[in-house]
C-alpha cells in the first residue's frame, strides 16, 4: 500500500503530499494534547498513542515506508514497545520499594498522596502511550513491508 514502486505511487500526488505535510504536525500535536489533557477531559495514553501512530502512518502512506523508517527505525520501535511496558510496570516496582502496594501511586509523594497519584498516573499513561504508538506503527510497517504474493 505504501510501496514507492507499486501501482499507487502516492508520493507523486501533489495535493496529497502538500496536505499531508501541513496536516501531520497538527495530528502529532493533537496526540500530545490528548496524552497530557487526559486528566481533565476525554482521552489518555491509549487514544494518544493511536493518534500519534496515525499521524506517522499518514506520513508512511504518502512518502513510502522507507521514508517512515528513516524517521522511526524499526529497531527503535521494538525498543519503544518494551520501554512503555517497563515504565508502567516499573512505577509499580517503585511504589513497592517506597513501602506501598504494587501500583499504589500515593507513596510516590511522601507529603501529599494526591500529588503522588498525579505523578503515577502521568507516568503510567506515558508508558501506555509509548507502547500503543509503537505497536500500531509496528503492525502497520509489518503489513506494509510485505510484497503481494
Amino acid at each position: 500500500m505504501s510501496d514507492p514502486g507499486s501501482h499507487m505511487r502516492m508520493h507523486e500526488k501533489l495535493v496529497l503530499r502538500i496536505v499531508a505535510k501541513r496536516f501531520i504536525p497538527f495530528v502529532l500535536l493533537f496526540a500530545l494534547y490528548v496524552q497530557f489533557h487526559g486528566d481533565f477531559g476525554p482521552g489518555g495514553g491509549f487514544q494518544a498513542g493511536v493518534i500519534f501512530a496515525a499521524g506517522l502512518i499518514l506520513y508512511g502512506m504518502i512518502f513510502g515506508l522507507g521514508a517512515l523508517h528513516r524517521v522511526v527505525p524499526p529497531r527503535a520501535l521494538e525498543v519503544a514497545v518494551a520501554i512503555g511496558v517497563l515504565l508502567y510496570a516499573g512505577v509499580g516496582v517503585a511504589t513497592m520499594m517506597l513501602g506501598g502496594n504494587y501500583l499504589d501511586y500515593g507513596v510516590l509523594d511522601s507529603h501529599a498522596p494526591a500529588h503522588g497519584q498525579h505523578l503515577g498516573i502521568l507516568l503510567v499513561e506515558g508508558g501506555v502511550g509509548i507502547t500503543v504508538a509503537a505497536v500500531m506503527l509496528t503492525i502497520y510497517s509489518s503489513f506494509g513491508g510485505r510484497e503481494r504474493e
Binding site: D3, F46, V124, S142
Partner: peptide, 28 residues
C-alpha cells in the same frame, strides 16, 4: 491500574505476535 497494565500486556503481545509472524517490515 492492574487491569490497564494487563491491557498494555495484551497490546504488547499483539505487537510481538505480528513481528514474529510478518517480520519488522524492513526485509524489502
Amino acid at each position: 491500574g492492574y487491569d490497564t497494565l494487563g491491557e498494555l500486556f495484551v497490546v504488547t503481545t499483539a505487537g510481538i505476535g505480528v513481528m514474529l509472524l510478518l517480520g519488522r517490515g524492513e526485509s524489502r
